[in-house]
Simulated assay, not measured.
Amino acid sequence: MSLETVAEEIRSEAEETADAIHKDADERAEEIIAEAEADADEIVETAEAEVAQEIDQLREQELSSAKLEAKHERMSARREALDDVRDRVESRLTDLDAEKRRSLTDSLLTDSLAEFDEDEQLAVHYAPGDEDLIADLLDERSNVTTAGEYDCLGGVVIESESSRVRVKNTFDSVLADVWEDELKEISNRLFDDR
């Protein structure tokens, strides 16, 4: 064998080895590319799922927030309506005709006096403008005197001079008690919450 033949065989083997290496490298490159594409597809799917989930969560949060805001607005409107009703009731109490005012005041005075002993010395406070009415109602009661105005819509506040007991029986206090006791029913009637 000549040197040229040996060189040719070495070159031929080197080319075959190089071709095999290229072929293996191409196959490995294709595998790597296929794996990368599969990984990329999986990453895209995962990202799309996460985005969809985030959109759903944001939608739920926005819906919940809108519902809460609507509830707050309804409650605020109800509160305003109830305040308006109460203001109108107070206005009607202030504008009672003289006969009705006298009757209610006399009833509150009688109920209040029943809380004290008959011989106790008592002082009666009254609503602004009711001085003559109270003086007339107290005309036959010797143990009760007027004590001046009290900031209220009507009715009386009676104090015992000896025991420091005070009975507050004003239109305001009666309205506050009725309002508290009947608020649910008033609300149901106004807003049809049955």
Rank of each mutant, 00 (worst) to 15 (best):
L153Q: 03
D132Q: 14
Y150K: 12
D56I: 05
Q57W: 06
L58P: 01
L58I: 13
V167H: 12
L109S: 13
E35Q: 14
E161Y: 09
E16K: 06
E120G: 06
E60I: 03
A14N: 10
E30W: 09
I32R: 11
E60T: 02
F171N: 07
I33F: 13
E15V: 08
I158M: 11
E161A: 13
A18D: 04
I158V: 15
K71A: 13
T5D: 15
L153P: 01
K71I: 09
T94N: 09
I32F: 06
I10N: 09
E8K: 13
E118H: 08
A127P: 05
E99I: 12
S160H: 14
A49Q: 04
S187Q: 04
G154H: 02
A52Y: 08
S64V: 03
L108V: 04
L93S: 03
R164T: 14
V51H: 02
A38H: 03
E185Q: 01
D119L: 11
E115I: 02
E69S: 11
S162W: 14
T170W: 08
V165L: 11
A25V: 10
S112Y: 09
S187M: 00
T145Q: 14
N188W: 03
E45M: 12
A81H: 06
K23V: 02
T5Q: 15
E45Y: 09
Q121I: 03
K23G: 09
E4R: 10
S107R: 13
E90W: 05
V156N: 08
E99F: 11
V89P: 01
D151S: 13
S187Y: 00
D56C: 05
A47F: 04
R74W: 05
A7M: 14
A52D: 14
D39T: 10
F116A: 02
L137D: 12
K168E: 12
E9P: 00
L183W: 09
D19M: 11
R189G: 07
Y126M: 09
A25Y: 15
G148R: 10
T110E: 15
A20T: 06
V89L: 03
V124A: 14
A127C: 07
W179P: 07
R86T: 00
A52H: 07
A176V: 06
R28M: 08
Y126I: 07
D56G: 10
T146G: 06
D83R: 02
H22S: 10
E31Y: 08
D24N: 10
L58D: 10
E9F: 10
K168S: 07
S64R: 14
A14R: 10
D97C: 03
Q121P: 00
V85Q: 03
S160W: 14
T5M: 14
E120H: 05
L137C: 09
V174D: 00
K168M: 02
K23F: 05
F116W: 05
E99P: 06
E60F: 03
A34E: 11
A52C: 02
A176G: 07
E50P: 04
V174A: 04
W179H: 12
L113D: 02
E37W: 01
S173D: 12
T145K: 15
S12K: 11
V44T: 09
L68T: 03
L153K: 04
